[in-house]
Design a protein around this nucleic acid. Structure first.
Lengths: 343, 343
DNA sequence: TATCACCACTTAAACGATTAATTCACACCT
DNA sequence: AGGTGTGAATTAATCGTTTAAGTGGTGATA
């Protein structure tokens, strides 16, 4: 038993045939006689050659069967977020089924160069904190697809965020009301804060832009109003970041009648804060979420929200990437009318 | 702007130097003059060469900066399991910090050959359903480390499972009592079932073996007893699988005084079933868990369990793998005395 | 002046495969 | 016989690097 791994050449030498023939035995059975092929495969088995070296194949073939999933946030964060981890589920189930491997990538725009040379394609999930990464990605000549945000020139998988936001807001808002918005990633700031300027020229992700547009349209149409310091920026869909915004919005005077939240996590945190302050939901405060996570249906009152299937998104993204078509997809959504709007 | 990517050779031609010099400019700055190096780097910048092709580097250097995390269960399952996903957190935080990339692997023993050639090492988490994979892994001449189970010849990261099981059981069991065990992966069966045979020669994972040994020792020492059909096999730490075992154990007659569960998920499911049947915990039924997940402390009554840090396990595993030492580590654990044992 | 060390490069052989182009033998057809 | 088509294998170029070994040229040392 030797220490160094066997190569194609070793097998060829052993059998007295050319390396091309051995290679063909593994890759193109039609290029050699059945007898030869079996002889070769048997010999390989005997001497313990398990097949062509993959590193060499990657270089030569320019294909690795590895798909990189580019995550907006760190892996630790992503894995613990119910929406994101469900998305990963969807992606990986399709990849597994097609014999592809999944590389989780959460680095910056610089180190994307570490993987671009050997990865077969990219699924870019959520707007990267570092927008440069997106640009870098679009420059690369590799299949790529974005989910939950857009990069010019790349196909994407999405729901109609503007319409969804519009519709959920319409369900919640009544004429004459005051409305607040707990937004996600509206500006570059790494901490929760109010937004005073309008228009929000800094807005990071097209998805939040669209939701905001939908909310605004609904507010206007419903004859409700929003003050321009009643929009919060929350840097990621995290309970702690949300808690701070919740505190601020609930202690503002006057208090809004309705708060539109750009994720369920945010909405649930707001709900919990409100209840613990003795504020009656929905009588004194109506709340809408976004995503439709399971937990949002288990709370009392349960959440009014936009349900979208993260798993399906993942599946669609992976399938689109692997098919050579690479077209954009708009997925459906559902409105879930929970008790945080009407009891 | 050309369609095909630039190569080292292109840059060398352009500047009239050898490819070796270009390569050295990127990899070994001490091998050329400062002036040359800067000239080369500038030129690269100018023409848009972003550095040596990684696929070629992998082949030539035999190193990829990719670490494979071998998962016992499917990616979808793993990502949604709180213990496993916390473990991933730990692993990825260390990898990221060291500039390594994470490949999630959940295939079988065959397709491990897809990645073994280019991956730098393996972290094997939990006993693979397919034990052949473990064997295959041990055969490979790559750094590898196991977590939460053992393979002969590979270092591992673990707590002292036998001792932990022994201690938690001691806290729960009183003389003369009847004890049941809800075990994890005791045999190969893909569904929940009772185990009648003793000794359990089929036992899959050394970790369950150890916990079982610990439980048994405690039962014996405490002067309690267990019938040999009061051990359940649960194929994975999943609520549905657990629910079935819970039903069976709670409806057995006589009912055990204490049930020792090999995971918190299992214990929580049992607790919920017991409460919904009107069984008083801990007065009529004592329950212990294993792992110390957050949710286990939020229930009423909260769980008596063995707390171990999954995140730390992940960090230790990644660090051990990346350091060339590759030694086994035994991590500490804590006993959490919750209300499911003494109120 | 001969020797030596050192610097800054270049040469050329890997790394381990894939694949288009080529050769050769053989059978088939007219 | 001569031409042609086919199947099975080989040849040799290529993928894009890295790196040990080699090559001059320069300045210091004795």
């Amino acid at each position: 038993m030797t220490k160094t791994k066997l190569t194609l050449k070793d097998v060829a030498l052993q059998l007295g045939v050319s390396t091309a023939t051995i290679s063909n035995a593994f890759n193109r059975p039609d290029q050699l006689s059945k007898a030869r092929r079996e002889q070769i495969l048997d010999e390989c088995q005997r001497i313990g050659y398990t097949g062509p070296n993959k590193a060499a194949q990657i270089l030569r073939k320019g294909r690795s069967n590895i798909v990189a999933l580019i995550l907006a946030d760190s892996i630790p964060y992503t894995v613990s977020d119910p929406v994101a981890s469900t998305f990963i589920k969807g992606v990986s189930s399709v990849l597994q089924q097609q014999g592809k491997h999944l590389l989780l990538y959460a680095g910056d725009s610089q180190s994307i160069l570490d993987v671009v040379d050997f990865v077969d394609g990219f699924i870019c999930y959520g707007a990267p904190r570092n927008y440069k990464l997106a640009e870098e990605l679009a420059k690369q000549n590799k299949p790529a697809i974005t989910v939950d945000f857009d990069i010019d020139g790349l196909p994407s998988v999405n729901i109609d965020n503007q319409n969804a936001a519009y519709q959920i807001a319409k369900k919640a808002i009544s004429p004459g009301e005051h409305v607040a918005i707990l937004g996600l990633r509206l500006i570059e700031s790494p901490s929760t804060c109010r937004i005073y300027d309008s228009p929000l020229i800094e807005i990071q992700t097209s998805i939040s832009r669209r939701r905001l547009d939908g909310y605004m349209k609904a507010i206007e149409e419903s004859g409700a109003s929003i003050t321009n310091d009643w929009i919060w920026h929350i840097p990621e869909s995290d309970r702690n970041f949300a808690k701070q915004a919740a505190k601020e919005v609930l202690s503002s005077n006057p208090r809004p009648n309705t708060v539109l939240c750009m994720s369920d996590i945010i909405a649930l945190e707001l709900l919990q804060s409100a209840l613990s302050m003795g504020i009656k939901v929905p009588e004194e405060l109506k709340i809408t979420g976004f995503d439709g996570i399971e937990e949002a249906d288990r709370t009392r009152p349960n959440l009014t929200t936009v349900c979208q299937s993260s798993a399906l998104k993942g599946e669609m993204a992976a399938e689109a990437l692997l098919s050579e078509s690479l077209k954009s997809t708009v997925l459906p959504f559902d409105l879930k009318l929970g008790e945080t709007v009407t009891s």
